[in-house]
Design a binder for these strands. Structure first.
Lengths: 154, 154
DNA sequence: ATATATTTTGGGTAGATGTGGGTAATTTAC
DNA sequence: GTAAATTACCCACATCTACCCAAAATATAT
């Protein structure tokens, strides 16, 4: 069941087969707006996971990047990192997408994947790495984190 | 009988069946405003219980999270913690919702559940854990607690 | 007290979803 | 050019879930 279009939440376990196919939770597929149907953009995420953008969000990123001048070294590096690994994927009749080898290696993916909704994008993880990152992040609950937690009443 | 829309109070005992279904007190269901009907969002609460948000409250959280950039490590951790365990649920004709396995395990739920109104959300507890937490919390009536007690006249 | 309505609980089933594998089409390598 | 490898597209099956029905328990009205 889905709430807001193009907003993803929840955690799911899926398997990756020998063809690097991974299922996108039906929840997430049904969540796409009608102009978005069947297409995602996958790319390198931070924390060694794969980011999966719905088309509408990726277009916004493209648009923002377009405005950055390439004279600045920082800008150039940023654009390169963001654009380099991005590739559009369609899902098959069963709702699976094909991951690129580069991204599978980057995320150290093997047989199992944890897929989690991150509001405006999706993350694909090796479950054990996700666990590790999760434990580490609970240690760094710093002032900045507390400030966020106070601003956003949950 | 309900007072204000989307404001929950009271305590109830319900059973959880083999399909992880739990009834939402009819009181709480009738309390939902008309734009909220039939939908809640469940997620990990603090103190090992499950939090159940009415839609209207969760949308506010979604909206706040949507504005956070994922470049910041802290933002990413915060979004992940908040979004990861959240899943929308509709209740069936009988007024029950399906709990996810992850949340059932997190809250150590077995056969019985205590459901309590927490003003703008609902909490689902293992009754024995609720008892324990309740007893511990009566010990920590500290300065912070007193400060609150002065602000909120009861 | 009896009848009626509402609420809670339990279970069955059709349809949706996840997983694996095969084959044809396309690309890449040689 | 051909051969090998990769990709896209089917189909089949096992599993799960949303939905429906019905019994039991509780509350309300007569």
């Amino acid at each position: 069941m889905t709430l807001t279009k193009n907003i993803f939440t929840g955690e799911y376990s899926y398997s990756i087969d020998s063809k690097n196919r991974v299922n996108i939770p039906s929840n997430f597929r049904n969540c796409l707006s009608s102009d978005n149907k069947k297409t995602f953009v996958i790319t390198k995420g931070l924390d060694s996971c794969i980011w999966v953008y719905p088309l509408i969000f990726w277009k916004k990123i493209e648009n923002d990047l377009k405005k950055l001048s390439s004279i600045s070294n920082t800008n150039r590096a940023f654009i390169r990192n963001t654009a380099r690994y991005a590739s559009p994927v369609k899902f098959d009749k069963q709702g699976r997408i094909n991951l690129t080898n580069v991204l599978v290696e980057y995320a150290s993916l093997d047989k199992d994947a944890s897929i989690i909704g991150m509001i405006n994008k999706i993350e694909i993880w090796n479950p054990s790495i996700l666990d590790k990152v999760d434990k580490e992040s609970s240690k760094i609950k710093n002032d900045e984190y507390d400030e966020l937690a106070n601003k956003i009443i949950i």
